[in-house]
Design a protein around this nucleic acid. Structure first.
Lengths: 212, 212
DNA sequence: GACGTTACTGTACCATAGGTAAAGCTCGTC
DNA sequence: GACGAGCTTTACCTATGGTACAGTAACGTC
């Protein structure tokens, strides 16, 4: 998917310059947005020159793409891990899901400050500044959440047929929707508790919907 | 709250230049974000010069503030109207609320294209570019939604005591959260149906929570 | 009809940021 | 010792936000 960069062993001095650029960029983008993060600021922070930046990234769009790709991978790993842990503790699909949601809410609540926002959402609102690949990566990531949750809900429905018909796609999207919205809200009100509380409300909704 | 501009009758030629600037700016900001919207582009579209822009707005931050103030007023009027219409049809607080949510979902679904996004969220994700007034306006607007909905829920709770305790503040915030998140999602997937479907899910949640 | 105000235009200019082009240097590996 | 990765140095171009200020046409007021 990305360059062959990671396969070959990186050589030579300051092997991690690219990674340090990405780390600093991520931190600054989450704190103040992509546009407000200047290339000059990044290279100064990392201790290289502007030309050095353009050696690693074709342009600022390329930096955005790299940030987003890294974010998507991490996010997937985090969810995989979460559901694996929840399923280890539970055979029942509904119960396992509720446990995963609780774990997730606790993770969100434990984040140091108000989590400043999801890279995806940050880029999404400025995606006209970027090329199509950014938008497609974003869409693909959101869809993978939908697929993941819908599959869980299919198993839950099999075990706990709901009393009334449920829009499973929408229910799956609700999780992503509440997260993205919760980040916006948390940012607007400078209140980090909003996101975890919304996740717990979603958990209540799932519980009510599939209650035996 | 804002300038004394609207009280005095506007005089002279092209009385509506400022409004036309705001209209075009709103359209462009929703379509491609605030930073991607250039002042030159706005003045060209409206048929004035750059100096003319800075006559009306101190700087770009001032434009953002004016856009946000206008947006907040319209949003409040829209909600007032919606609830008034729903309450006219219903005496019961729960029923009226459910009707209002359905009306709202229908309104969102009827929007021409994917609604490109809420001005507030758009600015929220770039609010480090602006001064504190932008952030405060945003927070105040979100809080007004919370107050409005919490008050409705208080009346509903009185009529329909829920089986288990409910976090009314979080439930009130859920509406804003789903709207902001739904706009992000709709934009990411280019699917205008996501937001109305989320609103209808929220409606189901409220119904389940307070069912007799 | 003079006068002041509003709503601009015109000109000139500055700083910052993204971006390009190309030559050179330096360290580690083969 | 050659080669290439990972930069540095220098120079320069463009777009955009923003400032400063002088001038001017239309209009309302007295």
């Amino acid at each position: 998917m990305s360059q062959s960069q990671s396969e070959l062993l990186p050589r030579r001095r300051s092997i991690d310059t690219r990674k340090r650029l990405l780390d600093l960029a991520e931190q600054q983008v989450l704190a103040k947005g992509f546009v407000a993060t200047s290339i000059e600021e990044l290279v100064a922070g990392v201790g290289i020159t502007k030309s050095g930046f353009f050696y690693h990234f074709k342009d600022k769009n390329d930096l955005a793409r790299a940030l987003l790709e890294r974010h998507i991978v991490r996010e997937r790993e985090l969810l995989d891990d979460l559901f694996r842990r929840a399923d280890e503790l539970n055979d029942d699909p509904l119960h396992g899901f509720l446990v995963a949601l609780r774990l997730f809410a606790e993770m969100m609540a434990a984040l140091p400050e108000a989590h400043p926002g999801c890279i995806a959402a940050t880029l999404c609102y400025q995606d006209q500044l970027f090329d199509r690949t950014i938008h497609e990566l974003n869409a693909q990531s959101v869809l993978s959440w939908r697929v993941r949750f819908r599959e869980r809900f299919a198993r839950i429905v099999a075990a706990y047929p709901p009393a009334e018909p449920v829009d499973l796609d929408a229910l799956a999207d609700m999780m992503s929707t509440l997260i993205e919205g919760g980040l916006v809200m948390g940012r607007a009100l400078r209140d980090p508790s909003i996101l975890p509380r919304q996740v717990l409300l979603f958990r209540d909704f799932v519980r009510l919907t599939f209650r035996p």
